[in-house]
């Protein structure tokens, strides 16, 4: 590693453009939003930055606290479901034959590279009232009904399609669908580093598979589980598209409220305050994760 003072000209020619870009088109825009969050609307487009905390005060009103709470709950439930689905998958990839491993990883990753909007749309097409899920369920229902008639019982009532879209269930299903790869990859990375002889020892000494998983594998893979949880939770918390397209009127998440302040309600200072609250929540989670990793590194 070279000291910048000994190579000032080289350092300057390398550093100037990325640093300037980051300052001009990232730091400055965020700073403007941050300043707006302490302002208030005067006139249609004028914003007076008066240093008021009233926007943050408004964000603490029960209505918005409820939406914040709901977003956290939805993101947490999404993360938990992803963990439950993803852990066996990560385990299977880890213990698969080496020639299969890259293909299994690719199979998990490929949908992740497909456009988020298109994946959401694909889910909408199968979940809607005329979609395949409802059609298959209806088909089974009719089958069961005619079976009952055959054995001489009264037929079932007519099939009512399930409301699978535009409610909280759809939002969580959509978020799980979109975020599953985020969970599987860190889990796989952690499980892959695991010393297998420890698992074998546990099995040899008489612990069952379940006990080995909960008492040996899970604690050893804890750093991977935690990073998987954070990597899934953070984007789920800030999700905009899924609740917007798949949610009902009562499944608005924090990102939808922010969007409304900027695009429709035209209350930029309040939207700015909300988006900084979301950002602080994200930063705190990531900082905790970084601190954990650092202390883990120091210990080992």
């Amino acid at each position: 590693m070279q000291d910048w003072k000994q190579h000032k000209a080289t350092f300057a020619s390398i550093a100037v453009s990325p640093v300037l870009w980051l300052v001009a088109f990232f730091i400055v825009p965020l700073a403007v939003v941050w300043l707006y969050s302490f302002g208030r609307n005067v006139g249609l487009t004028e914003i007076d930055i008066s240093g008021t905390f009233s926007n943050y005060g408004r964000a603490l009103e029960p209505l918005y606290l409820e939406i914040f709470g709901k977003s956290v709950a939805v993101a947490a439930l999404t993360t938990l479901i992803c963990l439950i689905i993803g852990f066996p998958i990560a385990l299977a990839i880890t213990f698969a034959q080496p020639k299969w491993r890259p293909w299994m990883l690719l199979a998990i990753m490929l949908p992740f590279w497909t456009n988020l909007l298109i994946r959401t749309y694909a889910l909408i097409t199968v979940l809607r009232t005329e979609g395949y899920v409802n059609k298959s369920l209806g088909w089974f229902w009719e089958g069961a009904s005619s079976l009952k008639v055959m054995v001489g019982m009264a037929p079932l009532s007519t099939w009512e399609p399930l409301p699978l879209l535009y409610n909280n269930f759809a939002v969580i299903l959509g978020l799980v669908y979109v975020h599953l790869p985020f969970m599987v990859l860190p889990l796989y990375a952690a499980l892959d580093r695991l010393d297998r002889s420890l698992i074998e020892a546990s099995l040899d000494l008489g612990a069952g598979h379940f006990r080995t998983l909960t008492q040996i594998v899970a604690p050893l893979a804890a750093p991977g589980i935690i990073s998987g949880v954070i990597i899934t939770f953070v984007p789920a918390l800030g999700a905009y598209l899924t609740p917007d397209l798949m949610g009902g009127p009562d499944s608005q998440m924090i990102a939808n409220v922010i969007e409304r302040q900027f695009k429709r309600a035209n209350d930029w200072p309040f939207g700015a305050a909300l988006s900084f609250l979301l950002m602080y929540a994200t930063f705190i989670l990531i900082a905790l994760q970084t601190l954990r990793n650092r202390s883990a590194e120091r210990r080992s």
């Binding site: 390398i14 730091i27 990102a255 922010i258 939207g271 994200t282």
Partner: peptide, 27 residues
């Protein structure tokens, strides 16, 4: 290079990756 505030620059450089998309869009 080793330079002053390197950890800060490094962290800021990773920010666009972690900032929620909606916040960046708004900014």
């Amino acid at each position: 290079f080793r330079f002053p505030f390197k950890a800060g620059v490094e962290g800021t450089m990773a920010l666009p990756i972690v900032v929620p998309e909606i916040c960046m869009g708004v900014a």
